[in-house]
Design a protein around this nucleic acid. Structure first.
Length: 510
RNA sequence: GGAGCGUUGGUCAAGGGGUUAAGACACCUCCCUUUCACGGAGGAAUCACGGGUUCGAUUCCCGUACGCUCUACCA
């Protein structure tokens, strides 16, 4: 690794929609790596495809990072010494580099229209070669500065004929580089096509832009998904031609996050189909109104989300699974990232959140619980009572909205208590017991859970009833169902008046 | 079709020449708990296959199979 230079990494999303798991994990690994080495994390918006502009997508990305607790050191919002950080605003920069490549003979002008390209593909398509490439063989048959000659090329250029600039891939050259995760990777230049570098609209393609910007922004380590591996030789060549291989960042191609069932990259349809979020936060596509669920709104804690993502393809080798962001920064290393893709397991994701909820203090959880109630139209205030309740039920909550179910009865009497759970075994003796219990409670001045349990059991003993047969009815009266913390804890918190009220109410239904 | 990358229990995975092949999730059984959870104890792998190298291969090498990714003037 290049230790003399300050580590600088970048996440370079294309703002075309919501950020999914894989994207967030790429951000995370970038961030963890940079911070581990005390380096900078840059967010660069790759919006060179003007036809794919989606309103709100960029803001969404920033909000996701914020929610995850990941703050870029430089970005379109934070600015910095290498601004602008939006490629569309850097448009004038790229052409010069493309021209330079043409002059050096490493790239050429191509005048083929989209229709001509399509025609070429269908003409050369065979069973053996289902997708013909614009490569060192086919470029001889196309309309470009290689086949047209200098005079004709100049004439077309002067006339303003639409054209692109393509890289001229060497005919037979081995291109290799060392990937931080995979080790040495090599390619034959003849296997890669002459990728377009500069589009007809003057915008660079990803291939040119990524190399130019990584150079200009002094990026030292470049991490991206494994799907980029096949085009890596183009980038390596561009580095060689433009800025020197010795200045090229270290690459790491991250393993993919796969569908839980079957195979293939996880996508938002899988989430919809299998019932779990795939995006970090809710996202509605402004063009289609298509809605995709997010982890945040589903009730995940950002720490849990980040923790879960980090462990998808990485581990510290000790068996530890719960990490805070700071711990991850401290422990992370690219060498311990897995090579193979990982199937996403929503059950495990929920386990992480459950662990995080259990480990969180009631005070820290309170605001989020208030919000979860508010989402269901129930207003609760953040006070000592709420904190007690949260502490009592948090181990039963996997997702934030679970608090509404698990703690709702502390604030609202059960609307439809599950009478059927006790009715079959209900009898006169029990009826009498509870009537007497009400009288006892009304007289009681002590209201701690121990006091309540004691008087309850004493009363049961005097009536020669087993406390066990009476606990469930009491629970149904106070909670409404067969769940929740200890009944006397509940009675202690909801108070005398409410406890008596609920007992009376259910007694009336039996 | 081609190229590249990958392959340890259902899933995430540790380990990387000699191990009883960790741990976690999920699942099942039991314990704890007069509810539900939490917690605890158990339960599953001839390390894709075939050849090498080696005294010995899950671990190294070569094949094969399978899977994935890419194969756009998208990223």
């Amino acid at each position: 690794m290049n230790t003399e230079k300050k580590v600088r990494v970048r996440f370079a999303p294309s703002p075309t929609g919501g950020l999914h798991l894989g994207g967030v994990r790429t951000v995370l690994f970038n961030y963890l790596f940079a911070k581990h080495y005390g380096g900078d994390f840059i967010l660069r918006i790759e919006d060179t495809d003007q036809t794919r502009f989606v309103a709100g997508a960029e803001e969404y990305i920033f909000e996701c990072l914020k929610w995850c607790g990941i703050e870029p050191d430089e970005s379109a919002l934070h600015s910095g010494p290498y601004a602008p950080y939006r490629q569309s605003e850097r448009k004038p920069i790229y052409k010069g580099y493309a021209d330079k490549l043409v002059e050096a003979g490493h790239a050429y002008y191509a005048f083929d229209t989209p229709a001509e390209l399509e025609e070429m593909r269908s003409r050369f398509k065979t069973d053996e070669n289902p997708s013909p490439q614009y490569n060192h063989l086919l470029r001889e048959k196309m309309r470009n500065s290689l086949t047209l000659g200098n005079e004709e090329t100049q004439r077309l250029l002067a006339e303003g004929t639409a054209h692109v600039i393509r890289i001229k891939m060497p005919v037979d050259e081995e291109i290799k580089f060392t990937d931080m995760i995979r080790g040495e990777v090599s390619f034959q230049s003849s296997q890669t096509d002459d990728k377009v570098l500069l589009k007809a609209d003057g915008m660079p393609t990803y291939h040119l832009a990524v190399v130019v910007d990584d150079y200009l922004m002094k990026i030292t380590h470049a991490f991206r998904g494994e799907e980029w591996l096949p085009s890596a030789p183009v980038h390596v060549l561009l580095w060689k031609y433009l800025f020197g291989l010795e200045n090229m960042p270290q690459w790491a191609h991250l393993p993919l996050i796969l569908k839980p069932d079957g195979n293939g990259k996880l996508n938002k349809r899988d989430g919809e189909r299998l019932g779990f979020p795939v995006f970090a936060m809710n996202w509605t596509d402004p063009r289609t109104n298509e809605f995709t669920q997010g982890f945040r709104e589903k009730g995940f804690l950002p720490g849990a989300f980040v923790n879960m993502l980090a462990l998808l393809g990485w581990n510290d080798g000790t068996g530890q699974e719960i990490f805070t962001l700071n711990e991850l920064v401290e422990k992370f290393s690219m060498e311990r990232v897995h090579k193979g893709g990982a199937k996403f397991d929503y059950e495990k994701a929920k386990w992480f959140n459950h662990e995080w909820i259990k480990n969180s203090g009631a005070e820290d959880l309170a605001d989020k619980v208030v919000a979860a109630f508010a989402d269901k139209g129930i207003s609760v205030t953040k006070d000592k009572k709420l904190e007690k309740v949260v502490a009592l039920v948090k181990e039963r909550c996997t997702l934030l909205p679970d608090f509404v179910q698990q703690a709702g009865f502390f604030f609202q009497a059960p609307v439809e208590p599950d009478i059927s759970a006790i009715k079959p075994k209900w009898d006169e003796k029990k009826q009498l017991f509870f009537a007497e219990l009400i009288r006892t409670l009304e007289l009681s001045t002590l209201w701690e859970h121990e006091d309540l349990e004691k008087s309850f059991k004493e009363l049961a003993a005097t009536q020669q009833l087993k406390p066990g047969d009476l606990m469930l009815p009491l629970r149904i009266m106070l909670v409404g169902g067969k769940f929740g913390p200890g009944v006397f804890d509940i009675a202690a918190i909801i108070g005398k008046e409410e406890t008596i009220h609920r007992i009376k109410y259910v007694l009336g239904l039996l």
